[in-house]
Amino acid sequence: MTEFLQNLLLGILLGGVYALAAGGLTLIFGVMRVINIAHGAFLVLASFITYTLWDVLGIDPLLAILITTPVIGALGWVTYKVLVAPIRTAPMASTVLLTFGLALVVEGAMGEIWGNNSTAIRPSYGDESFAFAGLYLPKAQLYGGLVAVLVLVALWAILTKTWLGRAIRAAAINPSSAELVGIKVTSVAALVFALGIAAAGAGGAITGILYPFVPGSHYQWIARLLAIVVLGGMGSLNGAVLGALLFGVAETMTSAYVSPSWATAVPYAIVFAVLLVRPQGLLGTRMREDAVMA
């Protein structure tokens, strides 16, 4: 029972980190109808940048988030302006291929810069745990999960409490009307892209402490994040959080009670099951097609 409780708790903490990264993905999709396949690549890139900050400059990896996140966000902004903006009106499949291509380029770049060997960030508290009521909670996981929740709350606050958030939601619901009331949709889109990818960056800084990584890790990440987003309902932030928590728990449980090697199959199995039973995801709504035609 204690073991089960511990796994549950670890799963939820992991889910918090997943929620952060998946939140960025679902935000970008919700506002711009772009499935950013490069999301996982930016996440791993953030892990590598954090690694360098920690390894060379000795900055605590969790503190390094304050540097990593804006850097990755800026890259997202540039990505939007240079690559995505020119094909804004193209079909969704085009942006999928475009961001996939970008992911490959980023993977190649990471391989050139940091090499293809397994890299791990091991801060001093990496091997320490809190013992509490018979439970062992690794410090890295606990801190990581808490920081993720903090960043997620900040993101949520931006989206719901600020003018920018209202502009983002307006642009998501009806871009042409948003233009009419003075929202510059292209600028908002660039900001959303930056914000979404920054979230992946924050997530990557944290997961760098939890798992070792290689440039090719981004495939697994994008599969995981897409599974979460599909599970929660594409475009729904609340759905992404819920999906991420379920996902984190499912993955932890599979690896604890079945086998770690099959745990990697969990995301794909979930995608299939969800799309078979409820194609719009847990919290997604089917969109009204006739009204958005004009």
């Binding site: 193209a90 291509g101 992911a103 490959l104 380029v105 993977e107």
Partner: peptide, 14 residues
């Protein structure tokens, strides 16, 4: 190879 495939994909789509 990654640069080639990735870069080509981006260029072709655009």
């Amino acid at each position: 190879r990654l640069f080639l495939f990735g870069g080509l994909l981006v260029v072709v789509v655009i």
